[in-house]
Amino acid sequence: MIEILPDKCDFCGCCVGVCPEDAIELKEAEIFIIEELCTNCAKCVWSCPIEVLVFNRNGVKKNAEK
């Protein structure tokens, strides 16, 4: 599953723009993945300019919400 590292995030919205499922919620300085919608396609991981999103293969559920 995909994890967002909020301490590294700049809240730029690049990941939101490429998410095909509308599965990322971004407020002013708060971001999280809406897990019911996420399909783990990893496009957000690939497009993040500053390596904030990681694909966690072991699938441990961990809420990245601040």
Partner: peptide, 13 residues
Amino acid sequence: KTHIDFRDMESAV
């Protein structure tokens, strides 16, 4: 349909 393919999104810093 506002979503765009990740290849067409320029990742910038």
